[in-house]
Structure formats: C-alpha cells, structure tokens
C-alpha cells in the first residue's frame, strides 16, 4: 500500500471523527442552555419600585426582587451614628457606611438580605451590633449591614437601585 493511500485514508478517518465530535458538542448546547433561566423567569426579574412612605423610622421591611429578599431599612440617627463611629480599618470587610448608602439619603439602607456565609436570611434588630443576626451560624452584621463577627466572609451586598423620587426607589 502506498503512503499516499494511507494518508488519504487517515485524513478521511480524522475528518469523519472531527465532524462527528463537532456534532456531539453541538447537541450539548440546547441540553445545557435549557437549564439557564427561561424567558419568563428573566422577565419576572424585571425592576420593582418600592414606596418608602409607609416605612417608619427604625423599621426594616422585606421585599422580593428576583426571588431574593431585599431589606429596606429606615435608619434612626442613632443607628447611622453607630455605623459611622467605627474605625473602618478594623472591620473584617472594610467599607465605610457612606459607600453603602446613596448620597444625601443616609437614613435609607437597602441590602440583599442573604447572609454571605451560606445563604440564610438574617434577622433585623438583633445581635450585638444592633444590626442583623443570622440564626443559622451566628454571623452578626452592624447597622450598615457590614459583617462584624461570625463565619460570614463579607458584608451584606447591595442590590442595584436608584431613587426615582424622595419617597420611591427602583430596585434592579
């Protein structure tokens, strides 16, 4: 058998194998894509508006956005002062309180209410720091939602939101 013949044969086998492999990979695309959020789920995750007027000072309300609990806290003067009096450098996840609220809206703290440890929902106005306490594994957050003690590695995250007016925010 000439070498040209065997080269041609090898080429045929390699080409067939390659095309078949491409086809096999293409079949995986819909099988994987179908597990991603579907169109109705994405549409249901659209931005929501929250009216702030009914929230009394010192009150924390819980709303849902994309299936996640969002805490909207109307902080008292005392809570704001507590959050600002701490030395930021000493915190496990250093961040100033000013960076966690919108400018001029110091009393409104908006957080994703999911413990950064393993996803439980912390309870408001509990714990040693007057902020949030996670009952699952004892993580404690302060009045700015920053982690102070316990196994959680990071501060409570902030959702994307904006003030539509003085008394209304749009989350998402």
């Amino acid at each position: 058998m000439s070498s040209a013949h065997s080269t041609r044969r090898d080429f045929l086998y390699i080409a067939t194998g390659t095309v078949a492999a491409v086809g096999g990979a293409a079949v995986l695309v819909p099988l994987i894509a179908q597990m991603n959020p579907d169109a109705s789920t994405i549409a249901a995750g659209a931005a929501i508006e929250v009216d702030l007027t009914p929230i009394a000072e010192g009150q924390v309300i819980k709303v849902f956005w994309r299936g996640k609990p969002i805490f909207v806290s109307h902080r008292t003067k005392k809570e704001i002062d507590e959050a600002r009096s701490v030395n930021v450098a000493t915190l496990p996840d250093p961040q100033s309180d000013q960076a966690r609220v919108k400018p001029g809206k110091d009393q409104w703290l908006v957080l994703i209410g999911i413990c950064t440890h393993l996803g439980c929902i912390p309870i408001a106005h509990q714990g040693d720091y007057d902020g949030f306490f996670c009952p699952c594994h004892g993580s404690q957050y302060d009045t700015s939602g920053r982690i102070r003690r316990g196994p959680a590695p990071a501060n409570l995250p902030l959702p994307p939101y904006d003030f539509v007016s003085d008394s209304k925010i749009k989350i998402g």
Partner: peptide
C-alpha cells in the same frame, strides 16, 4: 406551552 415558548430551546427538545 411554557416549554414551547419560554424555555431555552424548549421547542426543540
């Protein structure tokens, strides 16, 4: 119908 309309490649599957 949800599969046919909303799910990614749902119509195909």
């Amino acid at each position: 119908e949800h599969i046919m309309r909303d799910v990614n490649y749902g119509w195909l599957l």
